[in-house]
């Protein structure tokens, strides 16, 4: 079993707000991230897939195809977007990095054929990242 990790970067804006909570509570929990005008990050996405090396090609997965899937399913939808307003998953869910990793996993998991999705890691900043290994 070989694990392959492909990186991609995208920039997006978001803010944290739960409509079920009072403005005071939103402010207390989310602090500056509650600003409704939003703020942005350069996100680094690392997608790890696993599989046996195909003896004919020497590949676990065709990196070109993996890059195309990442571009189509994630970057086209999220790069230079306001996550709360433009990405459907976040019309009802707060676009925390946790939920972002889960949303990206769900977008990718059915689109990969030969290799199996192992982990989605999303860096919100160089100091903070979230790992998601799929539904337990």
């Amino acid at each position: 079993m070989v694990y392959l990790t492909r990186k991609a970067e995208f920039a997006a804006s978001h803010y944290y707000h739960n409509p079920d909570l009072s403005p005071e509570e939103n402010q207390r929990i989310f602090g500056k991230c509650n600003n409704p005008n939003g703020h942005g990050h350069n996100y680094t996405l690392e997608v790890t897939v696993k599989g046996e090396v195909d003896p004919r090609s020497g590949f676990v997965v065709d990196l070109k195809q993996l890059k195309e899937v990442l571009n189509r399913e994630v970057l086209d939808a999220m790069d230079h977007r306001f996550l709360n307003k433009e990405v459907p998953e976040f019309s009802t869910r707060i676009p925390t990095t946790e939920n972002l990793a889960i949303a990206i996993w769900r977008r990718l998991v059915s689109k990969l054929d030969k290799a199996k999705l192992h982990r989605v890691r999303v860096y919100e900043t160089p100091d903070l990242f979230v790992d998601f290994y799929g539904e337990a």
């Binding site: 070989v2 694990y3 392959l4 990790t5 492909r6 990186k7 991609a8 676990v60 990196l63 982990r119």
Partner: peptide, 14 residues
């Protein structure tokens, strides 16, 4: 942008 990991039969953390 690309990295690869192999550990034979070992269980390991990516």
């Amino acid at each position: 942008m690309n990295s690869f990991e192999y550990g034979g039969e070992n269980e390991f953390v990516i």
